[in-house]
Amino acid sequence: TVKFKYKGEEKQVDISKIKKVWRVGKMISFTYDEGGGKTGRGAVSEKDAPKELLQ
């Protein structure tokens, strides 16, 4: 599970739902399947990112 803040809201998403991951400076950005055909997005700092996300 990845915990992150998006627009001031605390969120979390299961690693299995993450589609795409990329690095922006010291942040790790990602998109994930929100269900219902929607794609969500989020970002975590490199130090807070789970190891599975960095692979």
Rank of each mutant, 00 (worst) to 15 (best):
G42S: 03
V24L: 10
D33L: 05
G42E: 01
K47L: 12
I18W: 00
E9T: 13
K5D: 07
F30P: 00
F30E: 00
T39I: 15
K19P: 00
E10H: 09
V44Q: 01
K38H: 08
R41A: 06
A49T: 03
K47V: 13
S45T: 13
K47E: 13
Q12I: 15
D14L: 14
S16L: 10
P50W: 04
D48W: 11
V2N: 00
V2M: 07
G36A: 10
G37C: 06
L53H: 01
Y32L: 01
V24G: 04
G36W: 08
K38G: 07
V21D: 01
G42R: 01
I18V: 08
E46M: 14
W22S: 05
M27L: 14
G25N: 06
K11T: 06
E34H: 05
I15L: 13
D33W: 07
R41M: 14
V2Y: 02
K17R: 12
R23A: 05
S16E: 11
G35R: 03
V44G: 00
A49R: 01
I28Q: 00
K5Q: 12
K19T: 13
A43D: 07
E9A: 10
T39S: 07
K38D: 04
G35V: 08
K38I: 12
R23Q: 09
I18P: 00
S29H: 15
F30V: 01
I18Q: 00
K26Q: 13
G8L: 04
G36D: 13
K11G: 03
Y32I: 02
A49D: 01
E9C: 08
Q55H: 12
L53G: 01
P50F: 02
D48I: 08
G36P: 09
D33Q: 05
V13A: 04
K20M: 10
S16F: 07
K11V: 09
F4P: 01
K47C: 11
G42T: 02
K17S: 11
G37V: 03
K51Q: 12
V2C: 03
S45N: 15
S16W: 09
S16N: 12
Y32H: 02
T39M: 10
E34Y: 08
P50L: 04
V44K: 01
D33C: 05
S45E: 15
L53A: 01
V44N: 01
I28L: 10
F30H: 00
K19A: 05
T31G: 02
E46G: 08
G25Q: 03
K47S: 09
K47D: 13
Q55V: 13
K38Q: 09
P50A: 04
K3D: 05
D48R: 10
